[in-house]
């Protein structure tokens, strides 16, 4: 089975995931097309982060199927490293490597994992750091950067691997309100350039602005979904209405 760009780049079919007796995903299905930007919203503990972590194999699943570019993620035969070269991920807590400078953080994976030429990677890394507006911060250590700056380094670090899909797991949740914007601007630029993005977010205004499609999850299922133009105004399910009522 070969994947062609007209098929979903990420496809979930009846995904179930439990932590012990606690079932956090109770049959989740949806497709993401290449270049699409989707946002997953929902109350805390509804399984949003778990869902996104299953897509690059950080969490395993009990039933169902997740494919990325036609490849089954949870196939035991699958080379997870090959999958992760295609899927970038950015975390809530940035998770930069504290013993490396910003530039080294960005360069590490392409040099060590992709075995690319160091000079070429450095050129690309500097360009990426400039793209996320961090010129002059190349030699700073993560401890010397603000949360928003660290998060932009983390985005550049993921982009350096030239992924086909980017996963964002509540990337602004740990940031100060005034630095949230600089990170969101970076993500919006990515989305506008056609990067396939999947975001778990609490930023409703941002979701409304950038998303092609919004999924609302509650207690392990997708309750409702739709394009932002209708999702925020014509929510039908009472749970969605209640959630939107609380935050909008």
């Amino acid at each position: 089975m070969t994947w062609t760009p007209d098929q979903p780049i990420v496809s979930l079919k009846d995904v179930r995931k439990s932590f012990g007796d606690l079932e956090v995903l109770k049959g989740v299905s949806f497709d993401v097309m290449k270049g699409e930007v989707i946002c997953i919203i929902g109350p805390s503990g509804s399984g949003k982060s778990t869902l996104i972590r299953c897509i690059n194999g950080l969490n395993d699943i009990q039933a169902g199927s997740i494919t990325v570019e036609g490849q089954e993620v949870h196939d035991p035969k699958l080379d997870k490293l090959e999958l992760r070269k295609k899927v970038g991920m950015v975390f809530q807590q940035y998770n930069l490597f504290p013993h490396k400078t910003a530039l080294q953080n960005v360069m590490m994976a392409p040099v060590l994992v992709l075995k690319e030429d160091k000079a070429e990677v450095e050129r690309r890394a500097r360009a990426l750091l400039a793209k996320v507006r961090l010129q002059g911060k190349e030699d700073s250590y993560p401890g010397e950067l603000s949360g928003g700056q660290q998060q932009r380094v983390a985005i550049a670090r993921s982009l350096a691997m030239n992924p086909d899909v980017m996963l964002f797991d509540e990337v602004t949740a740990a940031l100060d309100p005034e630095t949230v914007k600089e990170v969101l601007v970076t993500i919006r630029e990515l989305a506008e350039e056609g990067m396939t993005c999947m975001l778990v977010t609490h930023e409703m205004g941002f979701a409304r602005e950038v998303a092609d499609h919004i999924y609302f999850t509650d207690r392990g299922v997708i309750v409702e979904h739709g394009p932002p133009s209708t999702f925020f105004t014509d929510a039908k399910d009472p749970r969605t209405q209640e959630f939107l009522g609380q935050i909008l």
Partner: peptide, 27 residues
């Protein structure tokens, strides 16, 4: 070392050996 460091490195397709020697042990 927080497990988040392992996860971040895993997401960047580092192998276990690389994570241990390049990222975890230096810290």
């Amino acid at each position: 070392v927080p497990t988040a460091q392992w996860e971040a490195a895993e997401s960047l397709a580092f192998s276990r050996r690389q994570i241990l020697w390049q990222i975890i042990l230096p810290q």
